[in-house]
């Protein structure tokens, strides 16, 4: 083990909760064995890219996916204040097959609504990785594009596409609900054209994304890929 990796290991251990640390456990029959909760309790298998096979079938499925966008109800920033109007009489996004789901397992769209603090980025990554394969990221606001007015803040990221594969950016601070709806339309076009393969990109460029994420999340105390 080189010094560098050892340092990283030690640093990682510092932030781990007591029950997640590696330890030697004695079984009831007296046999001693090592327990590594990060390996044993969580599945840290790398994600696998699952490329579409049959083009005709995939086109049909993509159409169904595009018309049934289940959005994770995770308001990561101030753009989230325009999500409730989207679901109410004036804008009524339900008409376009957009529905909110409370758990990441069942959702297919992650909306990063505005600036992303480092603490939230960690949760957003976890939520994203728990979503199932055709999954899309919609980023709202200038702050996710280039930092916006928080370009000099020590706690908000500058560009989201270094950490998560973004499908559509909606500019503005904050984007109006109309802009958000048109962002959803763009996303639908992308999905129907078969270009929204963010999940596969994430799996293919996994190491690059992880390196970027670990650069700013200094207390990385979870498995590399947590689903």
């Amino acid at each position: 083990m080189s010094d560098n990796t050892k340092n990283i290991e030690e640093k990682k251990d510092k932030f781990l909760a007591e029950e997640n640390k590696k330890r030697i456990v004695t079984g009831p029959d007296g046999v001693q064995f090592e327990v590594d909760p990060l390996q044993d309790y969580f599945c840290d298998k790398r994600p696998v890219a699952k490329d579409p096979k049959n083009k005709v079938i995939e086109n049909f499925l993509n159409w169904a996916r595009a018309e049934s966008l289940w959005v994770l109800g995770f308001g990561t920033g101030c753009g989230n204040i325009e999500i409730p109007p989207l679901l109410t009489p004036r804008f009524d996004a339900f008409r376009y097959g957009i529905q909110m789901r409370p758990t990441p397992r069942q959702s297919s769209v992650l909306i990063i609504s505005g600036y992303l603090a480092v603490k939230t980025l960690k949760r957003a990554i976890r939520s994203y990785e728990q979503m199932q394969n055709p999954k899309y990221v919609l980023a709202l606001g200038s702050c996710t594009i280039n930092g916006g007015m928080y370009y000099d803040s020590y706690n908000t990221i500058n560009r989201l596409d270094y950490y998560l594969p973004v499908d559509v950016y909606v500019a503005g601070c904050m984007p109006r609900p109309e802009a958000l709806l048109s962002g959803f339309n763009k996303l639908k076009e992308r999905i129907k054209a078969g270009r929204a393969e963010g999940a596969n990109d994430y799996a293919n460029k996994f190491d690059w994304y992880k390196a970027n994420q670990k650069k700013i999340i200094k207390d990385w105390n979870m498995p590399d890929y947590n689903w």
Binding site: N146, N158, K215
Partner: peptide, 18 residues
């Protein structure tokens, strides 16, 4: 004495062209 701009530029990835 904490310079937030310097920290942000070193830590995050400023988008080229901004």
């Amino acid at each position: 004495d904490f310079d937030t701009l310097k920290y942000a530029q070193e830590t995050f990835f400023p988008r080229e062209g901004r």
